[in-house]
């Protein structure tokens, strides 16, 4: 199993925001969710991968090759959906497609037609009159129409209704039937990828909190609920972010086994969702 994407010690300094020491890798044939709240550094990371902005340090390898030295070759094998697709607004989708298609040697008109049909996109209406959902769908249709080996999507589901978001997941499952295809999917709507993701990379404040198998994350993290009398310096060490109410506390732990040993049956242990993990971790970041 080799990595289609390998990022090491990536760094981008904006002065007021710094993406620092980002390292993670995506093995071929799998889908990774890149999660984090707004402003965490997801889009910056993706822009760096796509060489849309310059890095200040670190290395990025795609398909085993340095991403800038082999940029053209690499990009022809990537299907890219930007969170804010910027097409010429006075053109219609057919014209936009005619501009983009020649850049890809494996452009497949039949697939494009099929997706346009499926997404019910008008070919002759100018893009200025498209809704945000329609623009996103157009970007997705284009990204999936040239037999890309790596699909990179930055917030592809923002602005899309839940029905299409589920349809998109079906498309991604379809894609993953081919074990040579890989997907990097950034989102703050974690429920979109909670089931499909094989790996999760969680970014917060420009740093990686974890990048690992999703199953491992969901097994280690849990929401602990209990009475306030259980809280002391000792027990607080187990928690990554906590919400205290008048009647008890709710906290996130990343080591559910330790908590079980320490607090035993006095507590309620609930499964943590990716959203819980994001919410509570973010809290700790600001109130630690």
């Amino acid at each position: 199993m080799h990595n289609v994407l390998e990022i090491k010690n990536l760094r981008k300094d904006y002065g007021d925001f710094c993406l620092d020491d980002i390292s993670f890798s995506l093995p071929e044939g799998f889908i990774m969710g890149l999660i984090g709240p707004n402003g965490a550094g997801k889009t910056t990371t993706i822009k760096l991968i796509m060489n849309l902005i310059m890095k200040n340090g670190g290395s990025i390898k795609i398909f085993g090759k340095e991403h800038i030295a082999h940029e053209v070759e690499i990009k022809s094998r990537i299907g890219f959906v930007y969170d804010n697709p910027n097409y010429y607004e006075h053109l219609n989708l057919r014209q936009v497609k005619n501009i983009i298609a020649p850049f890809y040697k494996d452009w497949d008109e039949a697939i494009f037609r099929e997706l346009v049909d499926k997404f019910q996109l008008p070919l002759k209406k100018i893009l200025k009159k498209f809704s945000r959902g329609m623009v996103m769908k157009s970007a997705i249709a284009i990204a999936l129409s040239h037999h890309a080996d790596l699909i990179i999507m930055d917030e592809p589901t923002s602005g899309l209704d839940p029905i299409f978001r589920r349809e998109l997941l079906d498309l991604l499952y379809e894609l993953l039937q081919n074990e040579k295809k890989s997907i990097l999917f950034s989102t703050h709507i974690t429920s979109d990828i909670e089931r499909i993701a094989d790996y999760i990379t969680f970014i917060l404040g420009g740093k990686i909190i974890f990048s690992t198998r999703k199953d491992e994350v969901l097994e280690n993290y849990a929401i602990i609920k209990g009475g306030k009398e259980l809280l002391n310096e000792e027990t607080k060490r187990f928690f990554r972010g906590m919400r205290i109410s008048e009647y008890g506390f709710e906290a996130l732990t990343d080591n559910v086994d330790n908590i079980k040993k320490a607090l035993g049956s006095d507590i309620v242990i609930d499964k943590a969702t990716l959203e819980d993990i994001m919410y509570f971790s973010n809290m700790k970041d600001h109130h630690a």
Binding site: G29, F30, I31, L169, Y173, E174, L176, Q177, E179, R195, I196, A197, D198, Y199, R213, K214, D215
Partner: peptide, 17 residues
């Protein structure tokens, strides 16, 4: 594995396990 993952809408790694 990949077919079952798709049908159940779970991840490939989960199915593999």
């Amino acid at each position: 594995i990949r077919k079952l993952a798709k049908e159940l809408q779970i991840s490939v790694i989960t199915t593999k396990r």
